[in-house]
Design a protein around this nucleic acid. Structure first.
Length: 942
RNA sequence: GCCGCGGUGGUGGAAUCGGUAGACACGAAGGACUUAAAAUCCUUUGGCCAGUGAUGGCUGUGCGGGUUCAAGUCCCGCCCGCGGUACCA
């Protein structure tokens, strides 16, 4: 019978569904980790359900994790392998603005499509555990976590989050000023400590999207989503105090099994730098100002100071004489967008008229303002050492300021010497020391003299948590006297209200400003109409919503216990599953999701809601699947009518050379780079009159040939690009499933190459994998009883060993050839032994579960192959009596000799030297040395 | 600029601990079957050279050095591609 993959896949998907084969229950309460099955948690980064559906790039990681999940299950683990949807976000809302369709409607539709696509591929997800961030029974916990953060502060001594009530009771005892503060003043003070807090911050404002964006949502001054310009603004925003966890986020990296490159990306993003803060007096003022430097050793080379334009020190150093100039400069800085600043690297700045006093020499140092100093880092003020910092150097050259070299032999006439190498000069008591010694000595000196202190700074900033958008989690917050108060925990979830319009309001409020039912009745503890706001018992509710990373920062915990309506996750469920054993997803989340969720998890850990400090024990980044685009080449010569297309092999030959324009062509009308000419002509009216210069150079007006080389062909060019609609190179998994089956898709995606590497999707090779499955299927025509032969067992056990090694090492690509080789060996042996065939079905089940079930059934079973225990291999079947020794002469392989396995080093040497072939290659000479690696190789040195 | 990853046939890739480079698959070429085509099967397939041929020789993993009996793999110095990041003091 033919390999009817459609029937097979449909049948087994239905059977799995009917049997709830992928349902994973938590162990009952009396079970614990020692009595129950061991847990294993395999997680995929949940997708944002876009309108375009899945393309073949998305399932790559899902297939890999599915293989691991199935393998672990067969090894006897209880495997948690859930899937859900990161369903809030900008695209659905942008679409709503354009079309007027409610984002909930489009989101639901998109999710339904995603589920359909995912089901077709045969993943072993337990759909009972599905979560969606936009559903109230999920975002209730998003809001709950926000409330916990609001009610917590970071105790820097204990290095953990603590209830803010502890801080209040400490102040009540120890700080007499506390009780004298008004309620509002107390709230304001507490706000400076809360882990979720409200603050005036400089934000990335994106006018086109009408919202604020987090740093990781902005790249090179443009929004990551949509590519709109972003500018700087100061706004009152909710923030997550991620920076408090900087050190722990850094230290935790040493305890987890992630790729070095991903850890490095996080380390750079956290950006720890050890340095010193130093006080400089301002001439004529009592109060000093503070700068941060990592090069305390260069204190004797300071020739000017620089403040960030937004620095609070600016107002203090303003002199009447320079006031106008400075204000003009500040205005100019404020007007510039981030993008302009990045694009235009010219040195700019202005002198304030004030001077600082050098803390050791007492010299007067001019104070400048320049936007190369950032307000958000360190103290927003620096001491400039032009000889040893390239930015200071450029500034000094521009304003003609003195440059004092501090390192012996450093030539600073053309550029600064930034390296921390060399011996100090011109530096008083530091002279003669190395840079490293000098840094240490100066730190000690300034600490002792009270000039400054040792300080560690982090680049990591707090995360801005407000979005001026509709399609997100509402903040459970209302405002009394302009101060935020929480909606009581037992009133959650605070559901997203309906709005008449998804645009901002006329007065510039976020879309929730259109909602009528959006006021909090404190007395009756419920949401009421805004018309009832009296600021006595009814108050306005926050109009912003939460950002995308709110829900994705903890969803992995919720899967453990997703139907629990009392707790985020029960203690038992959390203790059982603990943390994600294997997390697979793309690198694009390196500095966003993977920082925020580590932070959020650490916070929940501090409060005792999560039992593991790090949420993702092992993480693999799957590579991107790029598109493989095809091109046709339109002739653009002077005599062209715009309808002539030149075959790719001729575009560099006259008369077409440099006179063709590449045009993307839909990859669906190209096969093996040969264009389907009829399809091309009907693809678009623009090409209806297309004529072609075929690969053999003939110009043919209207002969739509395609096929064998005896006929005329048009060869397309190709390139590897991002997979996107506009490049006509999107490949949809549904089409592959329809044409080849899910098992072929799964195996082919793995076959493409190592999971972590980026690679282009090239459908050309898929036939080989499909052919293999068909050949394998044909071997199951009539499984027979009988003892397998030695050779058959060797093939089988070689395969078991290989596949086990591969999955344990996440080397999925190398498994496919192993299956192919086993199939071809067994076919040559004409093997039809049930004992062998059923084991093949068991080990291929993680990769190709549908055909594996059908093969298992053909072997006479009525249960599921996916529940069969993972086999072990027996080395005795792998042993061969003889060893094939490659024999090298001077490192060059000459021949292979087979010798008994039992032979020792000397015997092998003797046997090789006596061999007929050896004499030929010695050509009479005597070997200088013979290297024998037993069981491996022989090398004869002449 | 800095950090990370990569570079192996026409293509995707294999070589897992320094030990036969190119497994496996695609593509291509030739052949079988067929009225024909599709499908299927068989053979060949890194490059160069010699030979009618079996075969043999040289060369070959981005480039240049080095370590080693032996290097795609380790070390040093470059080149190229991809990704991330950037006035972070």
């Amino acid at each position: 019978m033919d390999y009817d993959f459609r029937a097979i896949e449909q049948k087994w998907q239905q059977r799995w569904d009917a049997a709830h084969a992928y349902k994973v229950a938590n162990p009952s309460e009396k079970d614990d980790r020692t009595t129950s099955k061991k847990p294993y948690y395999v997680l995929d980064m949940f997708p944002y359900p876009s309108g375009a559906g899945l393309h073949v790039g998305h399932p790559l990681g899902y297939i890999a994790s599915d293989i691991v999940a199935r393998y672990k299950r067969q090894q006897g683990f209880r495997v948690l392998h859930p899937m859900g949807f990161d369903a809030y976000g900008l695209p659905a809302e942008q679409y709503a603005i354009q079309t007027g369709q409610h984002p909930e409607v489009t989101t639901k539709r998109n999710i339904a499509r995603y589920i359909e696509q995912l089901r077709a591929i045969g993943f072993c997800y337990d759909w009972d555990r599905e979560v969606r961030t936009c559903s109230p029974d999920f975002y209730r916990w998003t809001q709950w976590i926000f409330e916990q953060m609001f009610n917590s502060y970071y105790d820097s001594e204990k290095q953990q989050a603590r209830p803010i009530s502890e801080l209040v009771s400490r102040w009540e005892k120890e700080d007499p000023t506390w009780s004298q503060l008004s309620e509002k003043e107390q709230q304001e003070r507490l706000m400076q400590y809360r882990i979720a807090y409200l603050a005036d911050t400089k934000v990335n404002w994106c006018p086109a999207l009408g919202t604020v964006l987090a740093n990781d949502e902005v790249s090179e001054g443009l929004s990551v989503r949509g590519g709109h310009p972003v500018e700087q603004r100061v706004m009152r925003q909710w923030c997550w105090r991620v920076s408090a966890y900087a050190q722990r986020l850094l230290d935790g990296l040493d305890t987890i099994d992630w790729s070095e490159s991903l850890k490095d990306t996080q380390r750079n993003w956290i950006g720890r730098s050890e340095g010193a803060e130093m006080q400089f007096r301002i001439k004529g003022q009592a109060e000093p100002f503070t700068i941060f430097t990592t090069r305390a050793d260069t204190l004797f080379g300071v020739t000017f100071m620089v403040l960030a334009p937004e620095s609070e020190y600016v107002s203090r150093v303003l002199t009447d004489e320079h006031k106008q100039e400075v204000e003009q400069y500040l205005l100019r800085c404020r007007r510039r967008t981030e993008r302009e600043r990045i694009a235009d690297r010219q040195v700019t700045g202005v002198f304030t008229g004030s001077y600082a006093i050098h803390p050791i020499t007492g010299n007067e140092i001019p104070i400048y303002i320049s936007d190369y100093v950032l307000a958000g880092y360190g103290t927003g003020a620096i001491m400039a050492v032009p000889a040893h910092d390239s930015r200071d150097y450029a500034f000094a050259k521009h304003f003609n300021l003195p440059i004092i070299p501090l390192i012996e032999g450093a030539d600073v006439s053309e550029q600064s010497w930034d390296a921390k190498e060399g011996k100090m000069i011109n530096s008083d008591f530091l002279n003669g020391l190395t840079v490293k010694e000098a840094i240490a000595k100066m730190k000690q000196y300034i600490s002792e003299k009270g000039i400054g202190r040792v300080k560690v700074n982090y680049r990591l900033r707090d995360a801005i948590f407000s979005r001026q958008r509709y399609w997100g989690e509402p903040f459970p917050v209302y405002y009394k006297d302009n101060m935020p108060y929480l909606i009581p925990e037992d009133c959650l979830p605070l559901c997203l209200p309906e709005v008449s319009d998804f645009h901002p309001t006329a007065d510039g409020q976020p879309p929730l400003g259109h909602a009528d039912l959006w006021a909090w009745d404190e007395k009756n503890r419920k949401v009421v109409s805004r018309s009832l706001i009296d600021n006595q018992t009814v108050y306005p509710i926050e109009l912003c919503t939460m950002p995308g990373f709110a829900g994705s920062s903890f969803y992995f915990l919720r899967y453990m216990d997703n139907h629990n309506d009392k707790e985020l996750v029960s203690r038992e469920a959390n203790r059982y599953w603990q943390a994600v054993n294997l997390y697979i997803g793309g690198t694009e989340h390196a500095t966003g999701h993977l920082i925020y969720s580590r932070f959020c998890n650490k916070f929940l850990y501090d409060l005792g809601y999560a039992c593991e400090d790090e949420p993702f024990k092992k993480l693999i980044n799957q590579g991107m699947i790029q598109g493989r685009s095809n091109f046709v080449y339109r002739y653009t010569g002077d005599d062209s009518d715009g309808n002539l297309y030149v075959s790719y092999n001729l575009i560099d030959t006259p008369p077409y050379k440099n006179k063709v324009q590449p045009i993307h062509v839909d990859i669906n009308i190209v096969k093996n780079d040969i264009l389907d000419i009829a399809a091309f002509r009907s693809w678009s009216p623009d090409y209806a009159k297309a004529r072609f210069v075929y690969s053999d150079g003939t110009v043919d007006e209207d002969n739509p040939y395609i096929g064998t080389p005896t006929q005329k062909q048009y060869i397309c060019g190709w390139a590897v690009e991002k997979m996107s609609k506009s490049m006509y190179n999107v490949v949809n998994p549904d089409d592959i499933v329809a044409n080849y089956g899910a098992d072929t898709l799964r195996m082919y995606e793995m076959f493409l190459g190592p999971l972590e590497m980026s690679k282009p999707w090239d459908t050309n090779g898929i036939d080989g994998v499909h052919r293999f499955l068909r050949k394998l299927w044909n071997m199951y025509e009539a499984p027979a009883d009988g003892e397998p032969t030695k050779e058959e067992l060797r093939s089988l056990h070689k395969l078991i060993k290989k596949i086990t090694w591969d999955i344990d090492n996440y080397s999925f690509n190398t498994s496919i050839p192993a299956f192919m080789i086993a199939q071809s060996e067994l076919q040559q042996l004409a093997c039809n032994k049930r004992a062998v065939l059923e084991q093949i079905a068991v080990v291929i089940a993680p990769y190709a579960p549908h055909i594996a079930e059908a093969m298992w059934e053909r072997c006479g079973h009525t249960d599921f192959v996916i529940d069969q225990p993972w086999p072990t291999w027996d080395e005795q079947y792998l042993e061969e009596s003889g060893v094939k020794y490659p024999v090298q002469f001077n490192g060059k392989m000459r021949f292979v000799i087979t010798l008994p396995k039992t032979m020792g080093k000397e015997e092998v040497e003797r046997a090789v030297l006596e061999a007929e072939e050896t004499r030929k290659f010695l050509v009479g000479g005597t070997p200088k040395r013979v290297i024998v690696v037993p069981g491996k190789i022989v090398n004869i040195v002449l």
